[in-house]
């Protein structure tokens, strides 16, 4: 058995391994915090089991994993509902055990048994597990582990769709501004994956929840936190300017409030933010069907805008030319709009 780890012994079959992982995880419940020794022992047992699981799934310096065993283990984990236990016990696991679990997680999800991803199927029938993982961002000890596991899940469209539409998605707008940079930036990576990995799902989601999503997003763009402003602005151009989202984009650039946000960012004290803002601002101006209100704002602010644009330059690199070209076009268009009598008069 596993306590004779240092002696050569018959390797466990996948079935035996799942059984002993399950037992060792359950054992954590029966011990209370008072029984320090017993708890340590139980934890050690879990850790040993996870190392063996990791070894079977990923191999180590000497052993390559055996495909058939990987497949059997995956199947057995689903059959025995071990996934529930693994996720729910994550907060009480030790540091190395959590990491081993994260490493195993990506293999397990990607593992096909027959023609199906059986772990993904399992989660599809137990979506609450995803909510659990999202909420874990609030616990900074395990936030980064959960983040890794979530991003593995988000690679699968059905799981990404669920998280986007779940109530817990709202939490990300809070997580990305957490003071702890490790956690906040990890949450942002996950947030970004959610909004960029599956274009069509994102597009459907944005159409269905347009107002509430952009209300929240505006708060990120106008945040007092430099990192939040810069990252959210960059991300906005990444998903808004994608072709499946063109309808969303068309809607977005008709709204005066959005233009105002971009104009504010255009005069941000950070040059990086100014440049990113330009790439969205230009769409408002270049839009051939600008509504009257947009034109009015552009016309009223044309002097300030032109001044800002003249000073704006990426300064280095090959994108220079394209940028200058675009800038010229936008400047011309602003000048044209500002000359329209009926707007300023």
């Amino acid at each position: 058995m596993s306590f004779s780890f240092f002696k050569p012994s018959r390797p466990k079959t996948p079935q035996e391994m799942v059984k002993s992982i399950k037992e060792s995880l359950m054992a954590l419940d029966t011990k209370t915090v008072v029984e320090v020794r017993a708890l340590e022992k139980a934890m050690e047992e879990v850790e040993k089991n996870f190392v063996t699981m990791r070894c079977m799934l990923i191999g180590d310096a000497e052993v390559e994993p055996i495909a058939e065993q990987v497949s059997q283990l995956t199947q057995e984990i689903c059959n025995e509902c071990l996934i529930d236990l693994l996720i729910h016990k994550l907060p009480v696991l030790g540091w190395e055990a959590r990491k081993d679990l994260v490493n195993c997680w990506s293999i397990l999800l990607k593992q096909k048994v027959g023609s199906t991803y059986c772990c993904v199927n399992y989660i599809e029938n137990h979506f609450e597990l995803l909510d659990f993982l999202v909420v874990c961002y609030d616990n900074k000890e395990i936030a980064v582990n959960c983040g890794n596991m979530l991003r593995e899940c988000i690679k699968f469209p059905t799981l990404a769709k669920y998280i986007l539409e779940a109530a817990s998605f709202e939490l990300f707008f809070k997580f990305v501004e957490l003071p702890n940079f490790d956690v906040a930036s990890d949450a942002f990576s996950t947030f970004k994956d959610l909004l960029t990995k599956h274009e069509n799902i994102v597009s459907d989601f944005l159409s269905a929840h347009y107002d509430e999503f952009f209300d929240r997003y505006e708060k990120l763009l106008t945040s007092s936190n430099y990192v939040t402003r810069r990252q959210s602005l960059k991300l906005l151009s990444e998903f808004l300017l994608e072709s499946p989202n063109s309808q969303i984009m068309k809607r977005y650039i008709l709204e005066v409030r959005n233009l105002k946000v971009m104009m504010t960012l255009l005069k941000d004290s950070s040059k990086n933010i100014q440049l990113s803002a330009f790439h969205i601002f230009k769409v408002f101006v270049a839009n051939p069907n600008k509504p009257r209100e947009i034109k009015v704002i552009v016309a009223k602010n044309h002097e300030k805008l032109l001044e800002l644009l003249h000073d704006l330059s990426p300064g280095k690199g090959a994108e220079d030319e394209q940028f200058e070209e675009e800038k010229e076009l936008i400047i011309k268009e602003i000048e044209r709009v500002s000359r329209l009598q009926h707007l300023t008069g």
Partner: peptide, 22 residues
């Protein structure tokens, strides 16, 4: 390899065991 890994884990965990309960 396995052994050395486990040993290095031990080294780490002597300080880490305390961290188990978040």
């Amino acid at each position: 390899m396995k052994l050395s890994r486990l040993n290095s884990l031990r080294r780490v965990q002597s300080g880490e065991l305390i961290m188990k309960f978040p």
